[in-house]
């Protein structure tokens, strides 16, 4: 963890107020279970596909899941008070145009993706690495917005992150993405919401030959199998 903004505070265990237990009697009991034990109960959407992904990868292109990334949806009008408050709390200004990624454009650290003029996705590493729970992070950002307009929602489990790498990664994506992925149109550090065949995804180019594809959880099995199928001619 290199980005100071995620060393927000000491890990807080099971507390949090925005995404999950924000209501009446959270953590009244059961908090005696260690956080690590709780995290061990998680299953990522592509967990059962790990072997398939390994077997379906090769020298020219390979696929893996980056599970459990912390993801928080931010809604704020650009230049509004909530935008400013969020930028302060994130330590990164909100991106201002389509494709822009603020912060760690390579995905290592805290990055904020532009989803729409007033919608952003803040992405940070897994709680298991940072010690900061998605709920806690969302709670902190929510506190920054306060009673102002906008929204902070923990969506960490909403999407998973697949990483497609290698010299033929772009070709594999071009089999399904209609948007222009050529480096002239889609340089490293670009992320957009678009369709992969008929499935809505975020496509984020984190390196020259490295792409993140972020499908919603229920679409993950299909997207993994679809990508593996497209990879076969290069593997």
């Amino acid at each position: 963890m290199t980005d100071s903004t995620l060393t927000i505070e000491a890990p807080e265990g099971a507390a949090g107020s925005a995404g999950g237990a924000g209501g009446t009697n959270a953590s009244a009991s059961g908090a005696d279970v260690g956080r690590a034990a709780v995290l061990a109960h998680r299953r990522s959407p592509a967990q059962d596909l790990a072997d398939e992904m390994t077997q379906g990868s090769g020298q020219a292109v390979w696929l893996r899941e980056l599970p459990f990334l912390t993801q928080v949806t931010l809604r704020a009008q650009p230049d509004g008070p909530s935008s400013e408050a969020l930028a302060g709390a994130l330590g990164v200004g909100l991106p201002t145009r389509v494709g822009e990624v603020a912060g760690a454009i390579d995905g290592i650290g805290v990055a904020v993706l532009w989803l729409s003029p007033d919608e952003f996705l803040a992405v940070a590493p897994d709680e298991a690495q940072t010690g900061v729970s998605p709920e806690a992070w969302a709670g902190r950002l929510s506190t920054a917005v306060g009673a102002g307009p906008g929204q902070v929602v923990d969506v960490s489990a909403n999407r998973t992150t697949l990483e497609l790498s290698g010299p033929r990664a772009r070709s594999v994506l071009e089999k399904s993405c209609e948007i222009d992925l050529h480096p002239r149109a889609f340089p490293v550090g670009t992320a957009v919401v678009t369709l992969l065949e008929s499935t809505g995804v975020i496509v984020w180019r984190t390196g020259e030959e490295t792409w993140r594809v972020m499908p919603r959880a229920s679409f993950t099995t299909h997207v993994v199998r679809w990508l593996l199928d497209g990879m076969r001619e290069y593997c």
Partner: peptide
Amino acid sequence: PHCGPRPETE
């Protein structure tokens, strides 16, 4: 107006 040219399917 926000994302630029995209296919009709979107």
